[in-house]
């Protein structure tokens, strides 16, 4: 990949990478950091990345960076709360006011997404939100195609169950 191809790839995929990181991390500053780091790493590895594979390469890198950050977050939560892993991001028993606040369907869906495991969320975001092809997602997540589809089905069911649990359905 030469400089021109790098600039084109960045222009094409920067919003996708940033959106993915935002949905995975639910933290604007961290999402920006991850997107920047993924794009800079593409530059550093441009000699070994071909132009058609840039999107898959970027998504894999962004996913790995997100997983690293989520792990660190989890460790920090454990340290802060003894041995208990706390879910800081989702209230499983929202009150009436919280339900009213989450009136927009996008908010409801995104709220339910944060309650999924990071891998379930990654599969849902890559496939259902970003519409990436299965083979590219499998490559990005490092799982076989059959495993990916099974995980996608489970993730959809968990998302639906999560929405039912918090009293909202689309």
């Amino acid at each position: 990949m030469d400089n021109r191809e790098f600039e084109e790839a960045v222009g094409l995929h920067k919003n996708r990478v940033h959106s993915y990181a935002t949905m995975m991390l639910k933290d604007t500053a961290e999402a920006q950091d991850v997107a920047q780091e993924a794009l800079v790493r593409l530059w550093q590895h441009r000699a070994s990345v071909d132009d058609p594979g840039a999107r898959s390469w970027l998504m894999r890198t962004a996913h790995n960076l997100c997983i690293d950050r989520l792990r660190k977050r989890r460790v920090r939560s454990e340290v802060a709360d003894g041995d208990t892993v706390v879910d800081l991001q989702f209230d499983h028993n929202p009150g009436p006011q919280q339900r009213a606040e989450a009136s927009e369907i996008g908010d409801r869906i995104e709220g339910a997404l944060t309650a999924l495991s990071s891998l379930d969320r990654a599969v849902i975001v890559m496939r259902e939100v970003q519409g990436l092809p299965y083979d590219e997602i499998a490559q990005a997540l490092g799982v076989p195609l059959g495993t990916l589809k099974a995980r996608l089905h489970r993730a959809r069911e968990r998302l639906r169950a999560q929405l039912c649990r918090v009293g909202v359905t689309p």
């Binding site: 996708r16 949905m23 996008g106």
Partner: peptide
């Protein structure tokens, strides 16, 4: 609904 989620511009 997932397909209609807005992209967060960089």
């Amino acid at each position: 609904a997932l397909r209609e989620l807005t992209v967060t511009p960089f």
